[in-house]
Amino acid sequence: MGQIVIGVSDVKISSKSEDVLITYALGSCIAVIVYDPLAQVGGLLHFMLADSSIDKKKALQKPAMFADTGVPLLFKSCYKLGAEKKHMKVKLAGGASLMDDANFFRIGQKNIMAMRKILWRNNVIVAGEDTGENYNRTVELRMSDGRVTVRSGRGAVKEL
């Protein structure tokens, strides 16, 4: 297969070691990256908004648009391919904001908070995180070893 691109409000799962899951230019959106090294199953969710109650119809059509409907979908899809929750490593990237955005446009912050709350409620520990700040991020999950890299629009690359 090779490169699998995940767009905004989308989720993709893989169990093939030659695959690389990639999502481009996350702004205030968040990528949730999961990987089970034993089952060699991984997935990437790129959600846009925290709470699906704003548009329930949309949430049915596109559950990956929202954190509260997208995260369960991500986990369940991985379970179907044999992943187990206790082995899954969860990483987060994105949730950026504009400069001096106090009380205004806090969509990035809101997404981060919602995400943490959902994971916390489900006893999931975050293994790596690169969130906030004011630049965009491109995220990649390499299925052969579960390595997650984050590249910022300004050129810096880091591993989660």
């Binding site: 230019a25 950026a96 965009n136």
Partner: peptide, 8 residues
Amino acid sequence: MMMGIGGG
């Protein structure tokens, strides 16, 4: 910009 439309 926040939605990453034409972003990067």
